[in-house]
Design a binder for these strands. Structure first.
Lengths: 208, 208
DNA sequence: GGCATTCTTAGACCACTGGTCTAACTGGTG
DNA sequence: CACCAGTTAGACCAGTGGTCTAAGAATGCC
């Protein structure tokens, strides 16, 4: 499986694992995948190049691993985010709005992880982001598809367009909104208003 | 001004200008900015590295120039696209739908230019795309802002959100739709249906 | 305790990158 | 023909991601 550190990485001393992941997170968050330097990560982590390639298949493999690691950390700390089981549209959207608000707060409190995940999502459409990092993106797909399915079943989401198009549109919209929110960070007092605006935009796109 | 070949480039023999731009277009369209190799472009163009740096400030400068060159070519061949002057919303959207249809047809007939422009728009959110290429993107802004303004004036576009957010949302949506259309290219017979779907999605986002 | 085996590390080496720089070539002018 | 400005060629540089091999370290067995 791509995007998976070699099993021997998990047998490595915890402190050293952390040193590698921290160095990688810092570099990838600051510069994005393409402009990040594996050599700088290696130096910062205090290991040798041979070691790095002993534990990871390469730069892309390390990147995908760090993304998974951070996603799992966010879910563990701020989750869970089960697929909504509500039966009425208002309930459905309320749950999703709550998830979004929670995620926004979490990422506002963890700017490095936020930057990493942003860079990853933004780069998803470019060739320089390799298969491994795209595979990481694919991992979110089942959750998204299930949520979409639920929304369609209860009348909250349109059924006249291909699911892939609906999801893509929401993701594209979400990223654009994200970019704007970075430039115009809402005060905590109006975070919920911002979330309402976001949910409204998404609902408009997906409403039956 | 960045993104501008040095004036001496325009004094270069036409054939050689074209060789450089063709080699650059091919490489950037195929691999995107980050993974493109300036050395390969140089070799393919049949010039020396010293020459390339004599005419351009670097890889990024060349990229921005090729983008402008292709955008201008598209506008020259398939334009013009004046800011709509209609006074009623339906007229406004009809004009924009016509522009979109024309652009889609144009880009379907010019896949290399389409790939280049796609790579550019997709990369706009990533750090590896430099200031010069982002400046090229900024050049579309006045047209977009004017169109948005017209739409707002005649009641076709909402006024309750920041213009930057509305534009960003439309661009983000547009890219997601574009990605989907690449994977699911519509037959010419249903191109207008596809355009209608796209316009509907955009209208939902921006409607008052 | 020594030896063999396996695991892990170190860093030399490679082809390639974008970019700089200098010498040489070319063309125009007086 | 000499001089000057414009242009070209490609050597050189620091850095990249990745490979490879030798050496060191750890473990297990007799």
């Amino acid at each position: 499986m791509v995007g998976m550190a070699r099993p021997r990485f998990h047998r490595l001393d915890e402190t050293q694992q952390q040193a590698i992941l921290d160095a990688a997170l810092t570099e990838f968050a600051a510069r994005g995948f393409a402009d990040a330097s594996l050599n700088r990560i290696i130096e910062s982590a205090g290991i040798s190049k041979g070691s790095m390639y002993y534990y990871f298949d390469g730069k892309e493999d390390l990147y995908a691993h760090v993304i998974r690691d951070r996603l799992e950390a966010v879910i563990e700390r701020d989750g869970p985010f089960p697929v909504p089981e509500e039966r009425d549209p208002e309930g459905f959207w309320t749950v999703l709005a709550g998830y979004y608000l929670r995620l926004m707060r979490a990422l506002m409190g963890d700017p490095q992880t936020a930057a990493l995940l942003r860079g990853w999502l933004a780069g998803a459409g470019t060739p320089s982001l390799g298969a491994a990092a795209r595979e990481a993106e694919q991992r979110m797909l089942p959750w998204l598809m299930q949520t979409l399915s639920t929304g369609q079943r209860i009348g909250a989401v349109r059924t006249d367009l291909a699911p892939e198009l609906i999801l893509g549109a929401v993701m594209g919209l979400g990223q654009a909104i994200d970019v704007w929110l970075i430039s115009n960070p809402p005060a905590d007092a109006v975070l919920e208003d911002a979330v309402s605006t976001v949910m409204d935009l998404i609902r408009r796109v997906v409403a039956p």
